[in-house]
Nucleic acid binder design. Structure first.
Lengths: 192, 192
DNA sequence: GTCTATACGCTGATAGAC
DNA sequence: GTCTATCAGCGTATAGAC
């Protein structure tokens, strides 16, 4: 069973990477099985079809997000630190060859996907927005951030920019991303 | 020859639509030929392979952008009006079933594409950024906009947000997009 | 310019042995 | 759990008739 669990998670990892690099239609079972040294059938054993694989992958991402934000949600650390954490995470993902996030990678194929996946994706987005909103509220209360308008609205704006930034990273490169982060800081009244 | 020109441009139009909806790997020749009432071979006649088709499509987009911004570049109309024009254009594209722009649609497949296409795409992006920067500079000079930092940096931020917004439109819907525009206005010190 | 006919690799998927 | 063997279907692309 140990070997199986390992294979399963390695499949998800590789699929995750491919998904973010190329999108739903941009990779095949071969792209997963070959580098892992297993056969296509092994993938089908763990995930009957491609949709199942993607669903598991989203679930995985969702849990990662939950885990990495729960500490803050509970303890309420410094907002600035949280924001920088998101920037670092994003830059790290890009450099690791994951220039788009799950939502972005799925966006192009969104209406071809079954309802369950659309729903999971939506929940993922909503939770991200909720988290970001909370960070902004806290930052404002603590006097770390200053900005115009509703925190929720501002949160969506920042997430959209990061979403776009991740996409443009591949075309424009690392400097573009850092410049984007700098501008977000400036828009939040952070002196750097 | 008239019929040919017509078929050619109809192919580009349809391909453009599909490209933005589903990305490079998300559509096939059949998706183009069938609704147009022609055969796959007709497409191959006008564009020897898929890359040629995409190249033509980017060229087309590039020229559309040039045409729609040149008036402003020359005459220098009100910046606010230009910004609203971009918002309206974006919303219109989304509603017409084109939730992502060429660059975004290509982003997922970017490093699989030949250099010529990567280059064309890059030029497209750069020209957009140049235009947006010009709008912001003018708006600031005219006292219509107020914001922190370098206009070029702010321009990239706004374009990234719109890029992300177009992508998220499909998941979040029209209201999300309008909310994003409102926040951009707010960040530019526009009272509405 | 557009068609018919055809090639052929790759894709996701299944059945059954081990 | 993972393998081998095999499948039908779709994908892009080409050749040659009209």
């Amino acid at each position: 069973m140990n070997a199986a669990v390992d294979t399963r998670s390695r499949i998800i990892d590789r699929a995750n990477e491919l998904m973010m690099q190329r999108g739903f239609n941009g990779f095949s079972y071969r792209d997963i099985s070959e580098p892992l040294g297993v056969k296509n059938a092994a993938i089908h054993y763990h995930f009957p079809n491609k949709i199942d694989l993607i669903a598991a992958l989203i679930q995985d991402n969702h849990e990662l997000l939950k885990k990495s934000t729960s500490r803050f949600m509970e303890n309420g650390g410094p907002a600035r630190e949280q924001l920088e954490g998101l920037f670092a995470f994003t830059a790290g993902q890009c450099k690791a060859g994951r220039p788009v996030c799950v939502g972005g990678a799925l966006a192009a194929d969104y209406d071809q996907l079954p309802d369950e996946i659309q729903g999971a994706n939506q929940r993922f987005m909503n939770e991200s927005a909720k988290w970001m909103t909370r960070v902004l509220e806290l930052g404002r209360e603590q006097g770390e951030f200053s900005f115009e308008g509703d925190p929720a609205s501002k949160a969506r704006m920042i997430l959209a920019a990061i979403q776009g930034g991740r996409q443009l990273y591949r075309i424009q490169g690392e400097a573009y991303l850092q410049d984007l982060f700098a501008q977000i800081r400036r828009d939040l009244g952070i002196k750097s």
